[in-house]
Design a protein around this nucleic acid. Structure first.
Lengths: 223, 223
DNA sequence: CGCTCTATTGAACCGCATCAACGAACGTGG
DNA sequence: CCACGTTCGTTGATGCGGTTCAATAGAGCG
């Protein structure tokens, strides 16, 4: 489950129960550290317990695409032909619950976990299809609004009014996620700010003053 | 397994053996007919036996994104939360091998098939990630070249020299797949033709005169 | 306080979309 | 079989959204 334009609420999967959280030592990944690289063999998958990671791909000439941001509850590391097909590094200090690769390949090893992984993979396919629509058919303003909308829906401090979201990623990460440049992302933020739809608290924290207007911009209902 | 920029050769999965092909009646889908719509409940998956289908999503305002083209060997219809998340219709007359939904959800029902479906889902995730890079970070010329490259790699008549590919989809389908307009797609084809990289035989058949040059354009190594 | 890195803002350019016209392919009916 | 209409693809002219290049402002940190 990754950050996409989907508005569905995706619940963290119950792979790691609270009990386990208390007992186990999780894999710890410091901000900036890589968990794996494209081409590495997949030995285990991970569910993110806390923190945020970034999945990226790069072309030889340096062009980069952020495939997804991984948030708590998300499962990362699905193999294709046994290999990782993105790089993965942490945006902030992150804790991960490792999952046996065998749970994916061998359905009798851990049937419930296996089913959970399958569901996570299917959800991810759906989420990526949403992302296609965004990358291929939305304007810069719509992309940025869509991005904020998803973050608010999934991670907005709901006990707060107006809702607030953290942006642990840089403008350039957002740009590479949305297929834009940092300048354009910045301009879109500014436009939303000047329209009194959001308020920026520093560069990495956003208060959504008018969620309805944000919604409309995300779907291109006004400019 | 869908049409993406991936260059890997993807083999048709052995879900439907030759024996079965001869015995069974496949689901027949006429050109232009819909197999399912977004929001429909998923009751079965399908492996494409022959023909080509188109998976699409549309926004309320009519903007369309072609998510994938499904070719023989591909498995389509993966559910998310039990529902289809694209429309699916046939570009040409198509035969489909239906697959019990239960084979996906219940790993003990048909273990081998279940494993095959899992692998197909994982491959699809990988393929979609390739597509991200293309939608988000490639120029129009690179997109069109990448598209042709994949078609040649997967479906090019290999017994022929120079390689030849059919384009069962319209320019507008290609445009909606690549996040472009029909005019731009057409201009890119013309540019490749004028550079003697391809030859157009009618509008729906392409001979690749210079595969190496096509490769280079796909990766942005010139222009 | 000064250094560095990131974000913002401005100005000019360009790639692709848009709008429009034309041509080719195809089917239909006379 | 040809005249016609319709749809799809190509080509041209123009405009705009987003990139590019450049400069400034701000945030984090020693």
């Amino acid at each position: 489950m990754y950050v996409t334009i989907s508005t569905e609420d995706r619940q963290p999967l119950p792979v790691a129960s609270n009990r386990e959280c208390e007992r186990k030592q999780f894999t710890k990944l410091n901000a900036g550290s890589y968990l794996y690289l494209e081409g590495d063999e997949v030995t285990r998958l991970y569910q993110i317990v806390s923190g945020v990671v970034r999945l990226t791909r790069v072309l030889e000439d340096g062009r980069r695409q952020v495939i997804a941001f991984g948030y708590p509850g998300d499962i990362i590391g699905f193999p294709a032909k046994g290999l990782h097909h993105t790089d993965c590094d942490a945006l902030v200090d992150t804790r991960l619950a490792p999952i046996h690769r065998r749970a994916l390949d061998d359905s009798s090893f851990a049937p419930e976990l296996h089913a959970t992984l399958m569901m996570a993979a299917l959800d991810e396919i759906s989420a990526m299809q949403d992302h296609f629509m965004m990358l291929g058919r939305k304007s810069a303003a719509e992309k940025v609004a869509s991005f904020l909308r998803v973050l608010v829906a999934r991670f907005g401090a709901s006990d707060r009014e107006p809702p607030m979201v953290d942006l642990p990623m840089s403008r350039s990460d957002i740009a590479d996620f949305l297929g834009l440049t940092t300048e354009t992302v910045s301009r879109c933020f500014t436009a939303l700010r000047k329209a009194n739809i959001i308020r920026l608290i520093g560069a990495n924290r956003v208060e959504v003053l008018d969620p309805t207007a944000l919604e409309q911009r995300a779907d291109g209902q006004l400019n």
